[in-house]
Amino acid sequence: MKKPKKRNKIPFIILFIIHTSMLGYSFYKSKNKKQLFTLLMADIGFAYLLEYVVLNVFHAYTYKPKIMKKNFFDNVFGAILSQGIFVPFTAVFSTVLKIGWVGKLFLGGVYFSLVEQIFIRLKVYKHNWWKTIYTVTLIPLYFKISDWWNMFLDKRNPIVRVISLFLMILVTEANLLFLFAATRKIRFGIGRYHAWREHFIMVPLYAITLSFFSTLSFLKQNNWSSKLRVLIMTIGLDQLFKKGKVVKDKFHVVDYFTVRVLAIFLYGWFRDIVYGVRNRGEQNSEGKVLEKNDNLT
């Protein structure tokens, strides 16, 4: 008897509730919620970049949450749940609670390897060439990178702040582009027929390019000039892709500009979070109260 598709969703829903609760507790405990949000988005960005190589290009594993009708979209959506929620939310939890190496090995290695094996047995996930030992090794290291990143954010390291802003924009662009593809608004590819596999290899490169130039535009300040530069650059990049016949879209011009303008204002807000002003009495992630106005720029 064929297993009802709705059963595939249950393990993902359970993990969603668990890890969302962990993130909620992390924000409750954090003394600097803006920095924690920056860290969260950076952690998701790192996970997305790794997932692009491991899943999109080399197809290391397959997710089967049975939430979306097309298998290719369902697989990518499962990856978004994993790399955009389950793993990064846990990394932030580990950083906020200052969990040591032993805890990271248990929470990152043991816990996620057990989840992996359970998902395989439930047939909602399968390995193609990936091995559980990679999970056991890489996730605790990823958790430690989250700790280091938070430390450098505390120190206001200029390189870390620039990369953080880039990753915040990248995560947003990646999620937007997935939504556009899922609603059949956009598809990337070369040639007359644009296959979805080809789309999901090309679209992250588009998102990376757009995020890079947006980061450069907002690097000095968030003003109307910066926003206008990003809008012009975005339109120019889109027209370049269209003339090169590597993208097809079904956007109404009003919808396109609405989404793009809202996204640009969001990226300006990201810039203010990363390079904003801490006022007297505000605390850093260690709970230390700042004694005077401290301009992060």
Rank of each mutant, 00 (worst) to 15 (best):
S113F: 05
V57E: 06
F77A: 13
A60S: 15
S82D: 13
T95I: 04
V124Y: 03
V102H: 10
G78N: 07
H59S: 09
L97A: 09
D74R: 09
G108Y: 03
T90N: 07
Q83M: 14
G108H: 10
L107I: 15
V87C: 09
T90S: 15
G100L: 04
K98Y: 07
Y125I: 05
P88Y: 12
F106L: 14
Y125T: 02
I120V: 15
G100D: 15
L81W: 10
L114E: 11
Q83W: 08
T90C: 07
K126W: 05
A79Q: 03
G103Y: 01
A79T: 05
Y125S: 04
K123Q: 14
Q117L: 15
V110E: 10
Y63I: 01
F73E: 12
K126C: 08
V92D: 06
K64A: 04
L105T: 03
L81G: 03
K64D: 11
G84E: 04
F106C: 12
W101M: 14
T90F: 05
K66I: 02
L107H: 02
S113L: 10
I85Y: 04
F106D: 01
K66G: 08
A79P: 02
Y61M: 07
I80N: 03
G100M: 07
I118A: 15
V124G: 13
I99P: 03
G84L: 02
G78I: 02
L97T: 15
L107S: 06
Y61W: 15
G109S: 09
K70V: 00
Q117S: 12
G78D: 08
N75T: 11
F72W: 09
K66T: 05
I85L: 14
Y61K: 00
A60N: 07
T90K: 09
L105K: 02
V124M: 07
K69D: 07
K98T: 13
H127K: 04
V124P: 04
I80L: 11
N75C: 10
F93V: 06
L105H: 01
A79R: 01
I80R: 08
G100W: 06
V76T: 08
T90Q: 09
L107T: 12
Y63K: 00
I80T: 10
G100V: 11
V87N: 02
P65H: 04
K64Y: 09
A60P: 01
F73I: 06
D74P: 01
F119A: 09
